[in-house]
């Protein structure tokens, strides 16, 4: 951004200044009222605020409504396979510390078909910003039960109501070793959404953001209920947590102070059946990062490679 350097007499002018329009591409084809639109706006705002160079920014997704996301960002994008956004994003980041890599995934993509990769991506703790769009239903394939559909959800695969309790992505993520950042926000709270995504991006490590998401098309009643339900939502606040403005904080009826260093309390909140907690559950800035390992030996010269080859041929020489 334009601004003054520490020397107030020198104006810092970057070679390019980006407006939000520089990150916008096409018209998003999500349903009217879909929560995905608000995340798109928040992310574009974040890119502008952080002045992320579009050519140095990559959005990797899987398959599903959420995974259309990269098509609407004027950055590099990778709209890959169902459930496989994590391995691709990890491969992108492994040798490219200079790239800002985001993963956009949904409840089916991340928690069902891609669940194995999700668990391991937490452990790898690479510097990725992960946005889990959790709308509790399969949208793109027209209303099938998702792993996060509440028990009893009527869907095309469970016309008499789903029969299993849902998976709890925050609880599971907090249970994986080397977890480093877990937060929850909601698509209909733009101030909180933006603050959360920003904090996630700023975290140097695997930042997992579960976004409670409305599907107005297939679960309209639930969508309405979620937005209006202040009784079952609590804002997590802390001086080390995610800072939100007063207006946003005032939207919550319940607020608790939660130290994001306290994993036990974080787990306890995640397991509360009566309450959804929004904010930062947990953050560990010291967890080992696999992307640092990936970048540690970048830039070997041809001479170094030739030397290693000759040494190896010496070993096999007869």
């Amino acid at each position: 951004m334009y601004g003054l350097k520490p020397d107030p007499c020198v104006l810092e002018v970057p070679d390019k200044y980006y407006s939000t329009g520089d990150y916008e591409k096409g018209v998003a084809r999500w349903c009217p009222g879909c929560g995905d639109h608000s995340v798109l706006s928040a992310v574009q705002k974040l890119c502008q605020e952080k002045q992320l160079p579009p050519e140095k920014t990559v959005f990797v997704s899987g398959i599903g409504c959420s995974s259309r996301f990269p098509h609407y960002m004027k950055t590099y994008g990778f709209h890959g396979l169902h459930g496989r956004a994590f391995p691709v994003a990890e491969g992108v980041k492994f040798r490219r510390p200079d790239l800002n890599v985001f993963v956009v995934t949904g409840d089916g993509d991340c928690l069902s078909i891609g669940a194995g990769h999700w668990i391991h991506s937490i452990r790898y703790n690479m510097n990725l910003t992960v946005l889990l769009f959790d709308n509790q239903i399969y949208g793109m394939t027209k209303k099938q039960t998702s792993p996060t559909s509440p028990m009893g959800t009527i869907s095309n695969t469970h016309p008499h109501g789903s029969v299993l309790p849902p998976i709890n992505p925050i609880q599971t993520t907090l249970g994986v070793s080397n977890v480093s950042f877990v937060a929850q926000t909601a698509d209909w709270l733009p101030g909180h959404l933006y603050a959360t995504i920003k904090a996630a991006h700023e975290h140097q490590g695997f930042s997992f953001v579960k976004i409670m998401m409305r599907c107005t098309k297939f679960l309209p009643e639930e969508a309405k209920k979620m937005v209006g339900d202040k009784e079952h939502m609590t804002l997590l606040q802390h001086s080390d947590g995610i800072e939100v403005d007063m207006a946003t904080a005032n939207l919550f009826k319940h607020t608790v102070q939660h130290d994001p260093a306290d994993i036990h309390q974080a787990r306890a909140y995640s397991e509360d059946p009566e309450m959804s907690y929004l904010g930062l559950y947990y953050r560990d800035k010291t967890a080992p990062r696999y992307d640092l390992y990936g970048a540690h030996n970048l830039g070997a010269t041809s001479e170094q490679k030739l030397k290693v080859l000759e040494e190896e041929f010496d070993k096999f020489a007869v």
Partner: peptide, 15 residues
């Protein structure tokens, strides 16, 4: 797993 192995390789090739 095997799927992740090739996905990772593709991501790495891509960038």
């Amino acid at each position: 797993d095997e799927i992740a192995a090739i996905g990772f390789a593709i991501g790495s090739s891509y960038s």
